[in-house]
């Protein structure tokens, strides 16, 4: 056999697999990069949708509250005031109507304060996250008859954005646990570790399937939290499984 022919064949036999491997690695990482970019784009889109969806929910809630509570009270006040003209000469009836109108206005004022407080809790602004979470857990325990324990050894105030994001996320997680988990107890723990603020929300409910939560059609709750976390460079981790309670851990760099 021709020696030159063997050298050529041998060189080709060596170069082909090496080229194939190099080509494979290049194509693999390129495709992986494209897939990651597409995934990030989808996540960004989902967060945007969640944000818009969340705004719509809040607007609908405010609209409903204004219509059902304030609107009804103001209508009643207007009727009460219009009746005052009818009884302009009947002093006792006028006094009664004025008293009722004042009651209606007081109730409307009280409702406006409540709606405003629901939208932006004054405790959070004035006293910070720790006091706001303490207040929130106490009120929720009172309203739901479900023990919601808040544990925190800290005594500090944090960046306003961080405090609001963590407060809203806690509200979201507690509401989720109340609505879907059939929990008997909810624990909220706030701590600091390695220059990171750590918020943990656990419940002893029925848990849920992670795959279901990861579906694009999932509720906006978790997406909302993810969206809030992306703004403050926080991380949301969850340890969940059907049949046992859920644990959500949020860490935010300080």
């Amino acid at each position: 056999m021709n020696e030159v022919k063997i050298v050529i064949l041998g060189t080709i036999a060596m170069l082909l697999p090496v080229s194939a491997i190099i080509l494979f690695v290049i194509v693999y990482y390129r495709r992986q990069r494209l897939q990651r970019a597409a995934h990030e784009e989808a996540l960004h889109q989902a967060m945007l949708e969640a944000s818009v969806g969340s705004q719509e929910v809040v607007r609908r809630q405010i609209g409903g509250d204004l219509h059902d509570e304030i609107g009804a009270l103001l209508s009643a006040t207007r009727m009460s005031l219009s009746q005052l003209n009818k009884y302009s000469e009947n002093e006792s009836k006028r006094t009664l109507l004025l008293g009722r109108t004042e009651e209606l206005l007081n109730e409307a004022l009280h409702n406006v304060r409540r709606i405003s407080k629901d939208l932006m809790p004054s405790t959070l602004d004035e006293f910070g996250l720790i006091e706001a979470l303490k207040d929130f857990s106490q009120k929720m325990t009172l309203h739901t008859n479900l023990p919601i324990h808040f544990t925190c050894d800290l005594n500090a105030r944090y960046d306003a954005k961080t405090e609001l994001a963590l407060y809203r996320s806690t509200q979201e997680l507690v509401n989720n646990a109340l609505k879907h988990a059939e929990a008997k107890e909810i624990k909220i723990t706030l701590s600091e570790n390695n220059k990171k603020l750590r918020l943990e929300v656990t419940d002893d409910g029925k848990g849920f399937d992670l795959e279901a939560v990861n579906q694009p059609s999932r509720g906006i709750g978790i997406k909302n939290i993810e969206s809030r976390m992306s703004l403050i460079k926080g991380q949301l981790k969850f340890d969940v499984e059907i049949g046992r309670g859920s644990t959500f851990i949020i860490t935010v760099p300080l």
């Binding site: 992670l210 939560v213 990861n214 939290i225 993810e226 976390m229 992306s230 991380q235 949301l236 981790k237 969850f238 340890d239 969940v240 499984e241």
Partner: peptide, 8 residues
């Protein structure tokens, strides 16, 4: 490891 976890 059986516990599922996800990271945002």
């Amino acid at each position: 490891s059986s516990s599922k976890s996800a990271q945002s």
